[in-house]
Amino acid sequence: MSSQDIELILSRQLSEYLAVPMALIDHDGKMVYYNEAAGFILGKHFDEDGEIDLRDWGGRFFNHEGFTESTDLHEIPFFKVLSVRHLVQGEYYMRNFEEINQKLMIVCVPLVGLSQRELGALIFINLVNRL
C-alpha cells in the first residue's frame, strides 16, 4: 500500500482539528478526506462512507438554483482547480448525497509542494443556505 504525500497527511491532521468545513482532493481529483463539518454539508461522513470518486459528483452540481441544468464535470470547482492550477472560488448549487439542494460558497486552493509537485487541492466549503 502506498501512503499519501506528507503535505496531504498534515493537511488532514489540521482539518481534523477544525470546525471549518474542509476537504482534500488528491492529484487525480479524488476527495480523499473531508472533515466532520464538511461531511454535514456533503451529506456523507468520511468514517462511514470514505473517499469520494470523481464520477460521484456527476449530476450533483447545477448552474442555477432551479437545480435543473447540471454543471459540466470539468466546471465543478473540485476539478477545475486541478486544471487551472490557481485558486478557484465562487457560489455553487449542489445537491448533496442526502438529496438536499444547497447554495454553497466554495474556495479551492491548489496544493503545490516543493519542487512544484502537484498534490491536489484544499477545499473550504461554506453553506450559504439550503433551498
Binding site: 500500500m1 502506498s2 501512503s3 498534515l10
Partner: peptide
C-alpha cells in the same frame, strides 16, 4: 504521531509509511 492522538491510524495516512513498509 504529530496530531494523531490514537497513533497509529491507517498506513495510508501515516507519514513515512511508504518508505519503511
Amino acid at each position: 504521531a504529530l496530531g494523531v492522538p490514537a497513533f497509529p491510524k491507517s498506513a495510508e495516512w501515516t507519514s513515512g509509511y511508504e518508505l519503511a513498509a
